[in-house]
Design a protein around this nucleic acid. Structure first.
Lengths: 336, 336
DNA sequence: GTGAAAGCGCTAACAT
DNA sequence: ATGTTAGCGCTTTCAC
């Protein structure tokens, strides 16, 4: 940072005290209109900008939100981020971003970065590793510092804080029922993320819907994306399937392609629904019916919840739920 | 922020001075090993964390980089961001993100956010509106503050600062030549971004390649994505075309679909190459051959350039160029 | 080896 | 209406 002009400098130039300058620039009526304008003009001419760091130190408020997301190359998190930025900016807050890259270690480091006073609160979504190991010690640490925190999408019951989640349970439930209503009876649930909370919620919703419909479930958990195509292909050849519900976007697109390449007519012979309304789903062939999580809104809600807490307008920790919507495209049959 | 423990608190507890505590925690040999360990243990037990704001004020360095990108929902910028975050974190820097949403006003506001001492430097890519209007006054403002700045991808000659760009010119040049080498002779350049620098560079590369090959160019500038399909469809029906070079990813995917839906065999009758190696290109049908800009590396290079300047290791402003690579997929013919 | 004091840039209660 | 002073939390020079 170059040598920037300070209040002190301005004060010296005009032979007044620093506090006079400060008050004048803050339009304090204690100062005469005359001096106020004089000082403001000088400040203007020197392009004076108050030092934000000093203001933060003084006010004990940084007007900054720390955001920790597991990945930025997943479109869903980008969209949430978009919502966060929009809402934060609208409310006069800046955002600092840390990526955990799905690792617990990096998540913990990110929190360390934030508990030193550089932010007024944290918005976070759990790393996959953290959800697997269920080791939340780094959060207890941060909670000792009383730094307000909001968790979104990937959350844990073991951490007490405000939460914003998608209604994944009902999303899967609705999607399953919808498949049923379009005539599907053999619905397989393909789940590449059985270890993270959202994957589990979606499974539960699927199971409950089938239970209600008195249909026996078929679940295909897959370790990673590279094996989905082979495993699903095998599954299709040994099981009667007329619909696939995939727990995320990529697995849905892969499932769609596997079914299509295996000669099934889509949606007539096999219908496919995925989670997450992203580019891949929109541009797949045929275009994919998805359960949209309204990512942007999740971001906005998270900011709202956090700022409400920072501004002390809330007491009990709240759990906000964003409803899902089915976006109907060409991988599913129309309702009759 | 809750009432956190400070140096002062620790000092009071141990009946020593603040400076002793500060020195002890910073392992200053002036302090006896005995007191040092005693103080450290106390600090540990109280989970003391130094206040970063105070440190920044004192040291006049925030260890933070401000990043301004035009859009976060464009995969390219996400990838750059990924590279920025990775490199910054590795070097001990945090990043604050502002989105200009392609608007000059928001770009200017973002810069205002940064010239108040909250960051040590700025990494920025120009908003489309700014590139259209060529009004760079908000940058002159920031340059007065001597805040180091690196511009990437969308840059302007009129602003003197370090730059990191993709070699869009040669990228288009290489792609055009490649199309020629696979037998194409009627190559149309579809450009939805003729107003921004990268779109212009790509056009120039295309034109130069055709000039060298003594082939007359065909350029189809389009106002926005919604009309590409209609305009290109019309173009194909009135012109002989055996290859399409599209100036960005989305237009390439649309072009691919238009050609395919109009009955052309891809790549045999029409080859398609796009810019940007993203999800859409990878998952289009057929998969799309693209000019990859190595977005992540652009991010990393930008951080390197910025930190070099912050640490005063550079004098002249430098222009770093990241080479492109053609990713060969199924929308182009193989070389014989 | 430890402490006092000054100062980073700002704000605000309290004089004058 | 203006100035003095203290203090945010930290580092660092200079005394002791």
């Amino acid at each position: 940072m170059g040598a920037k002009i300070t209040l002190k400098d301005l004060a010296k130039i005009l032979n007044v005290s620093v506090s006079t300058v400060s008050k004048a620039l803050n339009d304090n009526p204690e100062i005469s209109v005359e001096t106020r304008t004089k000082i403001k003009e000088l400040a203007e001419s020197y392009r004076y900008v108050p030092n934000n760091i000093a203001q933060s130190l003084k006010s004990k408020s940084t007007k900054t939100i720390g955001v920790v997301i597991p990945a930025i190359l997943l479109e869903f998190f980008c969209k949430v981020l978009y919502g966060i930025e929009k809402e934060a900016t609208a409310r006069g807050y800046k955002i600092i971003i840390c990526l955990s890259n799905e690792l617990q270690q990096k998540e913990s480091e990110s929190i360390d970065t934030f508990i030193n006073g550089s932010v007024d609160g944290i918005i976070l979504s759990l790393a996959e590793e953290t959800q697997k190991t269920k080791n939340y010690s780094h959060f207890y640490k941060s909670m000792n510092y009383h730094l307000p925190m909001v968790m979104f999408d990937r959350v844990s019951d073991e951490i007490q804080c405000d939460k914003v989640t998608v209604d994944d349970f009902h999303g899967a439930h609705k999607a399953t029922k919808f498949l049923y209503e379009t005539g599907c009876r053999n619905i397989v649930f393909v789940n590449p993320i059985p270890t993270i909370s959202v994957g589990q919620e979606r499974e539960s919703g699927y199971l409950e819907a089938l239970e209600e419909l008195q249909i026996s479930p078929m679940i295909l958990n897959v370790e990673n994306y590279s094996t989905i195509e082979r495993e699903l292909s095998e599954f299709l050849s040994t099981n009667k399937v007329d619909a696939i519900l995939a727990a995320d976007e990529y697995s849905a697109v892969l499932a769609l392609n596997v079914a299509r390449l295996n000669g099934y007519k889509i949606p007539d012979e096999i219908s496919v629904i995925g989670f997450t309304n992203g580019l891949m789903a929109e541009h797949s062939i045929p275009s994919l019916t998805v359960v949209s999580q309204h990512a942007e809104q999740i971001g906005r809600e998270s900011v709202k919840a956090l700022l409400d807490r920072i501004q002390g307008q809330t007491t009990e920790t709240a759990h906000h739920v964003v409803e899902t919507t089915i976006i109907h495209r060409n991988s599913t049959k129309k309702l009759v």
